[in-house]
Write a protein that binds this DNA or RNA. Sequence first.
DNA 1: CATGAATGAGTCTTCATTCAT
DNA 2: GATGAATGAAGACTCATTCAT
Lengths: 222, 222, 222, 222
Amino acid sequence: MPHPKPTLKPRKTPVQARSASTVDAIYAASIQVLHEVGLERFTTTRAAERAGASVGTLYQYFPNKSALLAAVLERHLTTVVEAVEAALVGVRGQPVAVIANTFVNAYLDAKLRDVTASMALYAVAGEDGGAEIVGRLTQRGQLALCEVLATARDAQFDNLRMVSLVLVTALSGPLQALLASGSNLAMADSLRRHLVVMVDAYLLRFTLPAPAFKKPRKLSKP
Amino acid sequence: MPHPKPTLKPRKTPVQARSASTVDAIYAASIQVLHEVGLERFTTTRAAERAGASVGTLYQYFPNKSALLAAVLERHLTTVVEAVEAALVGVRGQPVAVIANTFVNAYLDAKLRDVTASMALYAVAGEDGGAEIVGRLTQRGQLALCEVLATARDAQFDNLRMVSLVLVTALSGPLQALLASGSNLAMADSLRRHLVVMVDAYLLRFTLPAPAFKKPRKLSKP
Amino acid sequence: MPHPKPTLKPRKTPVQARSASTVDAIYAASIQVLHEVGLERFTTTRAAERAGASVGTLYQYFPNKSALLAAVLERHLTTVVEAVEAALVGVRGQPVAVIANTFVNAYLDAKLRDVTASMALYAVAGEDGGAEIVGRLTQRGQLALCEVLATARDAQFDNLRMVSLVLVTALSGPLQALLASGSNLAMADSLRRHLVVMVDAYLLRFTLPAPAFKKPRKLSKP
Amino acid sequence: MPHPKPTLKPRKTPVQARSASTVDAIYAASIQVLHEVGLERFTTTRAAERAGASVGTLYQYFPNKSALLAAVLERHLTTVVEAVEAALVGVRGQPVAVIANTFVNAYLDAKLRDVTASMALYAVAGEDGGAEIVGRLTQRGQLALCEVLATARDAQFDNLRMVSLVLVTALSGPLQALLASGSNLAMADSLRRHLVVMVDAYLLRFTLPAPAFKKPRKLSKP
DNA sequence: CATGAATGAGTCTTCATTCAT
DNA sequence: GATGAATGAAGACTCATTCAT
């Protein structure tokens, strides 16, 4: 969407202990406020108050409302991708089924670790520079998945790019549905299993006949 | 999200020709404005002006801004579900593969028929009563899919509910990625094929041993 | 001074009777507020309230505070220059002494006609686009004086530009002093006489020996 | 203008070397900031930063923003009057023509010595306690001129008060015009000559028949 | 003495909504 | 029914000033 965007970078890097905790408090408070009153009624003053600070202090660290929301979104998504990345590095060279399972579970775990944030930030992703942030981190996740899939012991893909893009984006919808339905525990488990199946089944379809004893591709040494 | 919601129902049903066209113009204008300036800078005055009407007239048909946005979102999503429903009734009793193919294509076609609207309304879905509307129409789509799958000639599912929920929600993420990337044509085609595969593969995994007259499916091994 | 300047043009041309009076009220109110609390504590809300309108209404006619102040300043100065221009056209072809007398009196009369405005706008001239406005209207006054002096029956100048610039700007200081001192009536009269003398004496010094029967220069035909 | 005024006096007299230089730096920095961003966007923090100090330090020497600006203005104007005073004491007892010439040149020289300050402080003079300061120092200049004129070898005035007031105030307008036009050098010289002429011509008109030993002045006709 | 983070009152400005014409 | 001027509550953001370190 063709909207112009002003500065979104933090105004000052929090180096001191107090500053850091203040900033953290603002992050947390923003999510709470977002969750409680929604994006439309989210105000910088409310966020600051909830964080136990004054608006002025908030503006000491964030140049404007958009930047604050962007930062909160980015931090959340970064946490999620990092969790996924971490999980994926552990299954390099494993069979596709393992990778599929790990990926889905890591993603869901990360998202469900902070249900409030996941729900609250959904609206934020749709506005402002949200799309850009989501896009960027999605891509990062896609890359991570790409790399691991390339090392799958029992398979070879000729279109890793598209495969990983589909996978990385396909989970958000179902997750959203889960969150919207009140994060029913039973449903969560069932959904988790279904997604694993879906991902696994999908990957299998794009698997090229692999050599019986496949060597790791990326890291192989002649 | 626990936000209170005021009235969202249209103030009056447009019965006269002029009214209908005015309302239509407002719908269209709203989407344009949404697309051009984003949800944050969307104003009722702007929408009305773009529609060639006055704010007052707009308020003749919509009790408030939220209701307008809700109506626009609802109309768009309704169009999409209806297209999907229509397509699905045509494949009742067909094999799973046909249903999968039809479903994915109907959904993508419907969404890509009005890319502008699809993009513009993304943000709207995250706010206001957006979640409720999305939820309701998602459910309607799920139901439609459910019913058709139940008639699949070559399969039987024991957990149709979950299966259809996953399918109905899993496409939105990839679609969103497509829209965000500029709706590249080649990518659109590729994505479409991948999604068909994913849906088909996923469905097959949850297929129960079907009645005798079932034909072997293409990729099965004897 | 190198400051950037945003839009200063009125937002909407007041065509209706009500609008016109509202705008007039805002002009008057602005001057009052300016006079009473000074530029620093001048707020758009205060100006609107004093005008018997709401801030919103004010912003319907002026895009921002700067534009409002600029408009008020411009209107005042325009009134003054126009008065001077009008007086000067009446003395075309008259002797220098008459022109000098007319010029000084027209200027002082115009300024003293609305002492409040003259005092209130002094600060405004020093900020924002004030300099530009003052410069532009000063130049207009200079031009008017230039043209009349060129027709003086008993004189000829070789450096009209500089002469008129000096005259047009030399009066503001003494006037300011008068206003600051409470516009003492006796002082006003005395000052008026002194300024006439000063202008006359100055002009005489730059007068070239003129032909006995001087023909109008500008309008003369060979 | 009837505005109330809080304390404007410096909080403490800088006695130490460091303090003095800090204060000097603040003065200079204030003028720079004023020149660069204008009075409206002048902030104490900016001034302090530019001076290489912290806001806190600034507030150590100036009780508030107004006092700072007032001090800066006062210092500048004081420098100017002192220069004029110094020049004038050197021409006591000289002919009017010499006094006129000396006065104008001393004033212009003093003002043009620091063009930046002259321009930057123009806006300040219109606000705050600016009027009071300008008035006070104008009066001091007037007094100085008064005293010298009273000693003029070749003249006697019966209304020295008004004459000196006019002269002291009449130069500011033309000077302002010069500054606004970019301080063109050629124009500066021309203006200087014109102002000398104006002052001289004006003074001559108010000269009373002087004592016997007065020599005829150059332009007088027998 | 210096520092600069924190404060929050005060501004500007927008925009949903109403209602007289 | 249509209009769009008027309203004013609400929110983003700034900045003078303080005070703990």
